[in-house]
């Protein structure tokens, strides 16, 4: 990696928007638009882990899917190596698909139940011709070793493995593509606590080894704090705040970020008992009818009249710290 690429973002996301059209009613007579993603912009720097957190329905997974063109965006650009991926057709995308990988939440349902582990890992190698036929087997074994599984697992089927082992397989298959960028879509959420730690450590280890860039989509803030370089907080299809890890956890500016941090329990009874929680009231509004103005105003403890009518602009309050809130201190209007 030369000096130039260090400062150049790996991916530039500009004004990314994704609306889904759904039909409602017994006969599908009403049509509604789900605002899954509304005008989000950020850069992803090479070698970093950018985490995206938020509650269900905030659009974090849609963001990952849309960046990878698994959903085609409604509007906006995704620039990767100078090319706008949103404008490419499926065939032109294929070489990029290989470099931009994804690991899903449920490793069981993302592995074809009728393929052995070895076949599943070999598939992208053969399809993209990443190794001569004779070397595929040894390549698969090396990938299995990379994720801490013995070579004989190549003969197994997904249903014979435990959840943690399957997630290791999913990681190995993503690695088989020799990617530069991996979206981890709730990749550890479905796993048991003791297994989560194993997979987190594995992801960090592989990142160092192969110089990978992660977009880590999660709802567990403690895990996010552990592994991220920067963190983006999403609410109802918009990014509320984006900052380097230490700043986001040390000095959160958006009321939603603060509430989110306050809601996370700590494994410390004494601390928990004396802790003053700020508990958000109400539920996340439907993404089919997002509130006008700031989308958080219906639950925000600080909301003023202006929040109801005017959507806050996305501004940088200090270097690298972006927030979308009328009331956030640190930087003028």
């Amino acid at each position: 990696m030369n000096a130039m690429t260090k400062t150049e973002p790996l991916l530039q996301i500009e004004g990314l928007t994704k609306h889904f059209h759904v039909r409602l009613g017994a006969f599908g007579e009403r049509e509604a638009v789900v605002h899954a993603l509304d005008d989000i912009s950020f850069d992803i720097m090479p070698g970093e882990t950018l985490s995206v957190v938020g509650e269900s329905g905030c659009g974090k997974s849609t963001a990952g899917f849309t960046i990878l063109q698994l959903h085609r965006p409604t509007a906006g650009r995704i620039r990767y190596q100078g090319r706008d991926l949103a404008g490419l057709d499926e065939k032109a995308l294929r070489p990029y698909r290989r470099e931009l990988q994804i690991i899903f939440q449920d490793p069981y349902s993302t592995l074809n139940p009728r393929m052995t582990i070895g076949e599943a890992i070999a598939e992208p190698i053969l399809f993209h011709k990443l190794a001569p036929k004779g070397e595929v087997k040894s390549r698969v074994e090396r990938l299995l070793a990379d994720v801490g599984l013995p070579a004989r697992f190549a003969m197994r089927y997904p249903h014979e493995l435990s959840g943690g082992q399957r997630q290791r397989v999913a990681i190995a298959r993503a690695l088989a593509c020799e990617p530069k960028f991996i979206v981890c879509d709730e990749a550890i959420s479905a796993l048991d606590v003791s297994i989560q730690a194993q997979i987190i450590n594995l992801l960090l280890e592989l990142q160092r080894k192969y110089g990978l860039t992660y977009l880590f989509i999660a709802h567990d803030l403690a895990v996010v704090r552990h592994i991220s370089t920067r963190v983006a907080v999403m609410y109802l299809g918009r990014v509320a705040e984006l900052a380097p890890r230490a700043r986001l956890f040390g000095n959160p500016l958006h009321p939603y970020t603060k509430a989110l941090l306050s809601a996370v329990p700590e494994a410390d009874p004494a601390y928990e008992r004396k802790r003053q929680r700020q508990i958000l009231q109400g539920d996340v509004p439907s993404p089919m009818a997002p509130p006008a103005g700031c989308r958080f105003h219906t639950r925000c403890p600080l909301a003023i009249e202006r929040c109801r009518v005017e959507a806050p602009v996305w501004r940088e309050t200090s270097p690298g710290h972006h927030v979308a809130c009328h009331l956030a201190e640190g930087g003028g209007e």
Partner: peptide, 23 residues
């Protein structure tokens, strides 16, 4: 999801139909 996963791997549509959907 495994069909989505196969798309994410960059596999082509005929391969996906033959190896993932039909079986």
């Amino acid at each position: 999801p495994y069909v989505t996963a196969a798309r994410a791997l960059g596999l082509s549509t005929p391969v996906i139909i033959a190896r993932y959907i039909v079986p």
